[in-house]
Simulated assay, not measured.
Amino acid sequence: MANIRDVAKAAGVSVTTVSRVLNNQPYVKEEKEAAVKKAIKETGYIPNINAVNLKKGKTNLIGVVLPFLDQPYFSNLVQGISQAASVHQYKLVLYQTGYHEHQEKEALEMLKLKQIDSLIICSRKISLDIVESYQQYGNIVLFEDGEQTSLSYTFIDHYACFIKALEYLYEHGHREIGFSINRLEGTNSRQREQAYRDFLKLKGLPYNEKYIFKKCLNIEDGERILKEMGTFQKRPTAILATGDQVAAGIITSSSKYQLKIPEDLAVIGFDDQPIARAMSITTVDIPLYSIGQLLFEQAVSEKVSHKEVSAELIERSTV
């Protein structure tokens, strides 16, 4: 394989001149530039992109950490990030971690090794202390309420969103309200659970742990919720499904369990995904595409920033 010296020899110029042409630097005579480009073509020379990036101190690569790529919630985020990245001539490196800490750590190590310029963490399991210890190596942006962190972040007030949805159900006469969630240990999930507990206490309603349905992500999980409810002596009259896919699963399976929506069971989803619009599901609209664009802007900015994005309750036919 030809190297830069081979190109210089074939073009009859110095290695420095070849380097200047490769890096689009000025002060190279037209005839010499033409000779270098001809020599590159004839020798089949391919620049070592790692060496080029090392010299520039920039890769134009942005890392994105997310647990799953096949979930509309995260894929919509990535679409927003990707669109903004393409406008600014950046490419994305996706780290699908499945909430495994060692894989999240690998992404942080990529930042440390200068293999990416910045890192966007859409959701994480690794501790915030560990994440913060890597900020000296490049921008790290979180999609969560970072509270007192020195990192940039964009967030939705999930506590307020949950309270708003619960109030809506309460106003429609519901007193036995359940909710579904994927994992309770996440920052956003903890806010939602705390909102649920606080709401029940405020309204003088009993807390029933069975009404919290965990590990729910997909349409199939919606049917699992109904199956579990069938074993209860007293079932919820409303479900706040933290994801439109789960809400859709509940609705499509309801007839199998002799339930009418919303007469027997009211359902509210989250995110306002296309399936929610197609099925007329009442939902909380979280503008994930726009949030993805914001996250990218923070990732390439030299300033630390904290941005809150509002969410809206969309009233449709399932409550």
Rank of each mutant, 00 (worst) to 15 (best):
Y45T: 02
V78W: 09
S254A: 15
T252F: 07
Q258L: 07
E193H: 08
E223F: 01
D70H: 14
Y45K: 10
E312V: 15
T231L: 13
L288P: 00
M110V: 00
P72S: 11
A34V: 11
V141R: 07
Q89C: 02
N3T: 00
E171F: 13
Q25G: 03
Y99R: 04
A39N: 05
Y211S: 09
K125E: 10
L169T: 01
P274W: 12
D285Q: 13
N139Q: 12
Q148T: 11
T97S: 09
I286E: 12
F143Y: 12
P236W: 08
Y211H: 11
I225S: 12
Y196M: 03
A278T: 08
Q89D: 14
S290Y: 08
I275T: 04
N60Y: 13
I4E: 08
K215L: 08
Q83R: 12
I275S: 05
L54G: 11
L288D: 01
L259Y: 02
N218S: 11
N139W: 00
K234P: 06
K105N: 12
A34N: 07
T318L: 03
E209P: 08
Y90K: 12
A160K: 15
K210G: 08
K29T: 08
A241L: 00
F68L: 11
T16N: 13
D244K: 07
E308D: 10
S301H: 07
N53W: 10
H100M: 05
L69Y: 07
K37A: 09
V93T: 14
